[in-house]
């Protein structure tokens, strides 16, 4: 499978209460200041179980996301089609997510500083055509995912569970067995 439309979500620590306006402001500063092409920020804080603040970009979008009623930072690869091998794409996408999570953790705009749990991730292939949510997709991707996650959490240092709801996209829940910070995870990823 040629992996495309990769998403990663890193969850925020339980009990973190996000001020949507602050997140809107921070994402807004990424538009002129980032080397990536970002277009605009949208506020969806009035709805539930979806994006809260969405930063639209050309190649990559980020959002403060509340899908599954759990807050986190969502990374989403869009256009153009990602190039390279699957391991390269996985490494690059997770690394981007973690770098941006680290940026958010140190952003002075936040009165209530976000704290991410690097051992609590969701991996999503946002493309039902190439990655139906079934065991065959998991079997196909598991070796490459494990190769990546072994680096971050150590072999056997985590669990992988496929989302059982067949109506959902292909989602893998990743839970580390021991606590890991964003900085540590980034360092181990290399």
């Amino acid at each position: 499978m040629d992996l495309q439309n990769i998403q990663w979500k890193i969850h925020l620590a339980d009990g973190y209460s996000a001020d949507a306006h602050e997140w809107f402001k921070v994402f807004g500063t990424w538009i002129p200041d980032s080397p990536e092409v970002f277009v605009d920020v949208a506020d969806y804080s009035h709805v539930q179980d979806g994006p809260v603040i969405f930063l639209s970009g050309h190649a990559v979008c980020y959002s403060l996301d509340a899908v599954g009623k759990r807050l986190g930072l969502l990374y989403e690869r869009r256009q153009p089609a990602a190039e390279g091998s699957n391991p390269e794409k996985l490494n690059e996408s997770l690394s981007s997510l973690l770098k941006h999570a680290a940026m958010l953790e140190s952003d002075a705009t936040f009165k209530n500083k976000p704290k991410f749990v690097a051992g609590d991730l969701k991996f999503i292939v946002n493309n039902r055509a190439i990655a139906p949510n079934n065991d065959a997709t998991l079997a196909a991707l598991k070796p490459e995912l494990e190769a990546l996650l072994n680096k971050v959490y150590g072999t056997g240092g985590y669990t992988l569970t496929r989302e059982p709801d067949v109506k959902q996209r292909f989602i893998v829940h990743v839970k580390a067995k021991a606590p890991v910070t964003v900085t540590e995870a980034l360092k181990k990823l290399g």
């Binding site: 969806y44 009035h46 709805v47 539930q48 179980d49 979806g50 994006p51 899908v67 599954g68 109506k167």
Partner: peptide, 13 residues
């Protein structure tokens, strides 16, 4: 629907 918006999960539910 606030501002006419509904999320994917809400729509599915």
């Amino acid at each position: 629907l606030p501002l006419g918006d509904i999320t994917s999960n809400q729509m599915r539910n």
